[in-house]
Design a binder for these strands. Sequence first.
DNA 1: CCTCCTGATGCAAACGTTTGTATAATAAAA
DNA 2: TTTTATTATACAAACGTTTGCATCAGGAGG
Lengths: 334, 334
Amino acid sequence: MATLKDVARLACVDVSTVSRALNNTSYVHPDTKARIYAAAKELGYHPNVLAQALRQGKRHTIGVVVPRLHMTIFSEILQGIEGKARQLGYYTLICATEDDPKTEKECLSRLRNGFVDGIIIAGTGRNGRLLRDIQASGISVVQLVRRQDSQLSSVVADYKTCGADAARYLYDKGCRKVGFISGSFHLSPYKERFDGFNKAVQELGLQAVFSQSDLAVNSFEYGYQCAQQMLDDHSDLDAILAAVDVQGLGAIRAVTERGLKIPRQIKVVSMTGHEVGGMLQTTMTSMEMPAHRMGESAAQMIIEEIQLPARKDGQIPAPQHRSFAMVLEERETS
Amino acid sequence: MATLKDVARLACVDVSTVSRALNNTSYVHPDTKARIYAAAKELGYHPNVLAQALRQGKRHTIGVVVPRLHMTIFSEILQGIEGKARQLGYYTLICATEDDPKTEKECLSRLRNGFVDGIIIAGTGRNGRLLRDIQASGISVVQLVRRQDSQLSSVVADYKTCGADAARYLYDKGCRKVGFISGSFHLSPYKERFDGFNKAVQELGLQAVFSQSDLAVNSFEYGYQCAQQMLDDHSDLDAILAAVDVQGLGAIRAVTERGLKIPRQIKVVSMTGHEVGGMLQTTMTSMEMPAHRMGESAAQMIIEEIQLPARKDGQIPAPQHRSFAMVLEERETS
DNA sequence: CCTCCTGATGCAAACGTTTGTATAATAAAA
DNA sequence: TTTTATTATACAAACGTTTGCATCAGGAGG
């Protein structure tokens, strides 16, 4: 790889002049500049981003820490992040934790070691201390999807309203006994959906059924098994509300297997809204999370924070919080 | 952030001693070492990966360039890559190109500028020259899913056999007239599936129907529209074979809308095998691509290439090619 | 004619590491 | 006792940039 030095030699000037010429950062004689550009082109010069980053203390890279990508909303969010980040001149580094606190810790430790300017994380909530440390050490942190620490910026959807809206929607559709399939209540998106749902249930006088299972929570299998159990225990169930799409698919499966007609006898609605919902044989109604926009928003937010002048003085900027509304996409399962 | 210098000062030794102590790379007196470790801990020292990378000429980062993540097999592959890369001590940088050659070029240019040791790419095939340049400039390149240049290493699945197997499978199931929905033939995975399929079709004496549409090719809409057209033109169609899952889902939709019974009247099979196939109301048969393993394989391959001693002499290592078998996952749509 | 800007360039330090070489002290061998 | 290893440490260069400072020519203002 050609370096500044090589270009300087070929153009018979000092490296500093080359640097200034290439970056347009000071007076350089037009002739000299032309010579330098020619030399750079001839040698196929590309600046070493690493050296630039080291010198300037800016890495132009953000790290994204998510549980997983496949079959989750995070793949879409990540696309949003990456696109926006690239547009703003940033690289996107990715880590998948499988929601394992240990893996997450490892990822965060790796990321803090000088490779990223900021971290966007949908975390387990078990490394709060570490995140604070990271934030204090000058790396911006934005919480994504899951808000666990109000002192750290965040981009989330309005889960509470989502849960309430879903309950009301089903009520309006004539449902009176709803099965509620969720993820772990330790995670805000699930807990808040539950809270919103529950409040609305009380107000509306709906009946609600909750189910427990020890299967991995955010999975098709879990949705399937929960739905089975619910249907076993409550023959009068007329709706199933699932936190995420794969659970909803599992529920549909269970319902279909019993020969129950969707949506006539029972309705199924998901509360995340992954593209797949619209691709089914009987398309699934869901509350759509504006994942791509949320990703873009998170990228934008963190880059703004990174570039904040206050950052330079070691000050921690005030946390920003942004929340997106989820909108009901009505389809055939309800 | 604490630096080596800070630790050195606190421990009253030279930075070089600190470096050696922390890296266990030379004799350091046990007492000194203890002092250094203590100092490092007290200051919360973390090595600056950037500086290390600059000094050592190793960035411990690989770049991954794919068309998109959401609703494609690439999200699963990426998970495989990231996991394996992390395990081997590498970071994973991600770029989504939307299969736009210009975006791809931009991504590749950015990546070559010293930030990655290697690039794993599922490309458009329109930047072959640039890829060769990159490879020549000392950055390892591995082609993923799509093999476009036999001089560059690759990890792909055996699409030809996949196409042939699918044809034979449908034939054995009693199908005699198969609609074939594909992606662009400029891309090897689609072209090869077609070739394999076509050859088998000739041998078996099957009838085949191909469809064109000007919609974005790798989409639900495209699958839906192709299937509609085929069903319009050929009332005796008894099977639809789709290249990727989302197309298959579109086809299922079109078939269902006409009131045709799957699999009795018509069978639908996909040739990629994304987890979603098994989550449908009527689960979809598909040829499963071992995406996660392919991702791991690509990561492993590129890291091995990066670490090859020959690399240091500027030599380009001989390309490696690995191909994975795709296996039929038989489900309810056939 | 001297001073003072302005444009153009070079020198050298810095970013935070790693690493080759030099040096000193102690221990072992001759 | 002198020589030679061995252990322990420091010094300084290097990686490829950016950037503050110094230098210097030439033209303008006095």
